[in-house]
Simulated scan of single mutants.
Amino acid sequence: MLLQVWSWERLHVGRPTRIAEAEVDPDIDPLAAHWRVRASSQENPRPHTLPFYRDQLDMQIEEQVTWQPYTDEILQRLPPSCLEGQEIWSAEVPLICFDLVEWHLPSRVMRQFGWVQDIPPTKSTETTLHNKDRRGMRVTDWEDYRHQYITLWEDRHDYVVNGVRDPTRVAHFGQYMNWYRRITRQHISPIPARRRMVFHPEGGARHFMECGIMHAFERHFEALDALDPTNEVARQAIVDIGNSLRQMHRLFRTVRLVDDVEPNPQLGHDDEVLADGVDNPQDMDETD
């Protein structure tokens, strides 16, 4: 239930439509209480559900993500017990419950704290921790067995992560995104063999098209650098190609917005007309 509400608050994929507003006491009820009403799932198809959700996640763009659903207004209404320990909310430490240990790594999700996302430091999540449970270990002294992690937790104030506040979007060609695209699997679904009368995911095809646009946009800078500076006609032609690619990239990313998604107030929007030239790959991010 907790994971489901987390998803509904932040992502549009699979989110039901509330038919009415819930009667919520802001001084007592948690944020999730406003989902305690009749809701419709008509926009979420029943057959082929998994391929549909995967495809929607593949095509998701930044405006469809609410990074911080807990606004300052909501936080001000919460009882004091919900706000205790704020100084360690971003501590990079193990979370422990008897035999269970999970690493809390806020440096990987800085935007959920309203901070600029930089390339996070390399950190092992120690997946071998999941190989041990209480089976066959009923008499284990877990305080002694997990001593090293308990020590880290007790020193949690020494491991608080801080960042630079910035409400703007992440630069698509910035250092972090270039690194992220290099180390991660960007899309869930491969391009499928198209069969008749079944749902056909589009995410994979869009991914290849977007990568092609991005690659061509980067190469046009190389062409500009290698061009004879006295050849103004050729220079202007390459600049026009770059501007066209930038427009295509912006259109490609914005047409994926679903009709019922409101603009995200946490993000800025730049509707300025393209200039005659694009001098830096970062400029492509101003409108994508």
Rank of each mutant, 00 (worst) to 15 (best):
L3P: 02
V5A: 07
V5G: 00
W6S: 04
E9T: 12
R10K: 14
H12N: 09
G14P: 04
T17A: 08
R18H: 08
I19L: 15
I19E: 13
D29P: 00
A32L: 12
A32T: 14
R36V: 00
R38I: 01
A39N: 08
S41T: 04
Q42I: 06
E43A: 14
E43H: 15
T49H: 11
L50W: 08
P51L: 03
D55K: 03
D58A: 02
M59N: 11
Q60L: 15
E63Y: 01
V65C: 09
Q68T: 15
Q68D: 10
Y70F: 15
T71K: 10
R77D: 10
R77N: 08
P79T: 04
P80H: 08
S81E: 12
S81G: 01
G85D: 04
G85I: 13
E87P: 00
E87Y: 00
S90M: 14
E92H: 05
P94N: 07
I96D: 02
I96L: 13
C97R: 11
C97G: 01
F98W: 02
F98Y: 05
D99E: 06
D99C: 07
E102L: 11
S107Q: 09
R108C: 12
R108V: 08
R108G: 00
Q112A: 04
Q112Y: 11
F113C: 02
W115S: 04
I119E: 04
P120F: 14
P120C: 09
P120I: 06
P121H: 05
K123L: 11
T125G: 07
T127V: 05
T128A: 15
T128E: 15
H130V: 02
N131I: 04
D133L: 10
R134F: 06
D141W: 05
W142Y: 11
E143P: 01
H147R: 15
Y149N: 03
I150G: 08
I150F: 13
L152M: 14
E154C: 09
D155R: 06
Y159A: 11
R169F: 05
R169S: 11
F173G: 01
Q175S: 08
W179D: 08
R182Q: 10
R185L: 13
I188H: 07
S189H: 04
P192L: 04
P192G: 03
P192E: 02
P192W: 02
R195N: 03
P201L: 06
E202K: 15
E202C: 12
A205E: 09
F208G: 00
M214Q: 14
A216Y: 01
A216D: 13
A216R: 05
R219F: 10
R219P: 01
F221T: 01
F221G: 02
E222N: 04
E222K: 07
L224P: 03
N231T: 03
E232C: 03
Q236E: 14
I238Y: 03
V239Y: 03
L245R: 04
R246Y: 06
R250S: 14
R250T: 14
R253Y: 02
V255H: 05
V255Q: 12
D259E: 12
E262N: 12
N264E: 06
Q266R: 06
L267I: 13
D270C: 14
E272I: 00
D276N: 10
N280P: 00
P281R: 08
Q282N: 02
Q282W: 06
